[in-house]
Design a protein around this nucleic acid. Sequence first.
DNA 1: GAGCGAAATGAAAGGGCTTTCATCGGCGGG
DNA 2: CCCGCCGATGAAAGCCCTTTCATTTCGCTC
Lengths: 360, 360
Amino acid sequence: MKSGANGYRRGAAGASMPNPPNAPVRLKDIAQDLNVSVMTVSKVVRGCADVGAQTRSRVLARIKELNYQPNWVARSLAARRTFIVGLVVPDLMNTFFAEIAKGVASAMRPLGYDVVICNSEEDASLEASEIERLLARQVDGLILASVQPPDAEEIFAKIEARGVPYVLVDRRVSRPSAPYVGADDEAIGRLATEHLIERGCRRIAHIAGPHHPAGVGRLKGYREALAAAGLKAVEEYVERAADDATGYQAARRLLSLDPVPDAIFGYNDPAAAGAMKAILEAGYRIPEQIKVVGAGNMHYSDLLRVPLSTVDQRSTGIGEQAAGILAKAITSKRRRAGGAILIEPTLVIRESSGGPLKST
Amino acid sequence: MKSGANGYRRGAAGASMPNPPNAPVRLKDIAQDLNVSVMTVSKVVRGCADVGAQTRSRVLARIKELNYQPNWVARSLAARRTFIVGLVVPDLMNTFFAEIAKGVASAMRPLGYDVVICNSEEDASLEASEIERLLARQVDGLILASVQPPDAEEIFAKIEARGVPYVLVDRRVSRPSAPYVGADDEAIGRLATEHLIERGCRRIAHIAGPHHPAGVGRLKGYREALAAAGLKAVEEYVERAADDATGYQAARRLLSLDPVPDAIFGYNDPAAAGAMKAILEAGYRIPEQIKVVGAGNMHYSDLLRVPLSTVDQRSTGIGEQAAGILAKAITSKRRRAGGAILIEPTLVIRESSGGPLKST
DNA sequence: GAGCGAAATGAAAGGGCTTTCATCGGCGGG
DNA sequence: CCCGCCGATGAAAGCCCTTTCATTTCGCTC
């Protein structure tokens, strides 16, 4: 019963079943139709130069006619490139990251790459597993806004061992060698805090992020600015949060302190927005009694309860630039993009810190 | 020079180069190490039952030791399944869709599927090309919040021709046979409009969406509600928009009309949020002079300038349910999920329409 | 101790494409 | 008139894994 072993797809006979109706068209089908080799068709599909003009047009015609679509899985396997890049962000609900995703996708598309977006939900282990899946899927490159705690070498070692180029965005994990696109977090922290100091605040609280570089860096900048202004850093004035819900909670705790803060700097906009909700609920006025500043300039920040002052980091640009760097790294031999692109953070002053002109 | 044809990867000699340092570990490497067949290793990896306990543990040990990761591209080709499903949404910046994405991903992950999220940016042709790429990538299924105008049969015909199961979410394209998860758009339109009528509004304007089912349906519901209440439908009171920026513009036009509307129903929350910005800028008070209602209950709606009344559609649930249906369709023989799941829309009353209790 | 079925293993044949390299025919130059 | 070269075409060998089905080896039953 040897013939039984023949195999899958097409009936039973041999290698020549013409076109079992429902199966997608393959290179081979076209080649047989036209009495040319699979190679020739493949070359036409890929736009190789060494195909006769006449042959080419015959093939092209048939391709259109049969509506041939290359099978990218097979192509990826053979070519050892998938033309997929992975993007891992911690929170898609924060439009700051959605915007980065948009930037990445729109920069990658014209280069022929698809972007697979993953949401790690600020969960380091979920993130790790997402990255592993992406690697298993043989992505050509990775863009990461990482959740990883500063000491998590392992994942990056794995990526590097695989030789997959990657770019860090927004969160600069402790890999000085890795390419990075984003703002200087300490500068962000300083900028926001200095602004509040200028506006006359003296009891400035901070809702810090989780223990990733962005959180840590902004906290540091905040402390530096306080120190530079000769203000005492009150330990109780620093809370932790990750998004609007936790920011709300954090702010409630801050509001229960005895000398109530006269300003809150949220490490990102959702946290600051949540804080504003808590502040208003507690009956304080923004900005008269308590001023608020966020960071990220997320899409809805100026539509919020009180339009939110924030530190802009040009999120779409981050995505595009990261994409550019990654594309270059993928193509180059060295497969390691270099250096960091530090985005100059800029203050966007809205009502939550007293508005553009008057100073308190 | 026959030997030159030998091929790629591993040096030159034969099929037995042991382990060219930098290449990823393959099934074959493990098999050779252990003197078993590739098959056996493959079975262990996939958790097949018919492997001896001892062999299994030897293999497992080696897998861990060498840190073997299956190559999903090869696996997908051989198994003719990718374990990838595609999700196409019109606007990731609208957290309503980000939430759906989250729901889909979290429901699919435990089933072993990865989700590829695509943002069509409300652009029908971009959407079409994204869907084609997903098909070319051999996705196992598709979840679509489609931008397509009602007459765009072509794409769906293509999907069906490929035999790829799909589920529609939030936007019910005119394919009565296709499975759908989302709210009844006319009900949404009615609910919002009736609420505004109850609150005493008589000149209710509507910022309608683009010409997709969600936009059309909600507009229809709005008109029905007006008619039912005996209110005249003023044609100038209907504007078009897609997001907060265009919603802002639309509202400005509405505010320039002579009898200024006393209410605006935005077909989605971003549009309504943009409208609120325009209204406040023009010096009107919300809700005293103009009331506003949106739809979708997006993540930041209650943090907005004036907390936004809206029609909730349980976005996370939509994603999860769609994922469930799709997974079933993928597994089943028929490959076509059935029926629609209509989510009961519910009103969420916040300040923008006068708050929960008092009735204007 | 022959016969049976189950358990464990593996051989062979692809999946649809690309890669490398050989071949073929025809042209101009020597 | 033969050589070598070029453009055009194709043959063969993979990419790494799964599928189908055959084989081998046991332990049992009767």
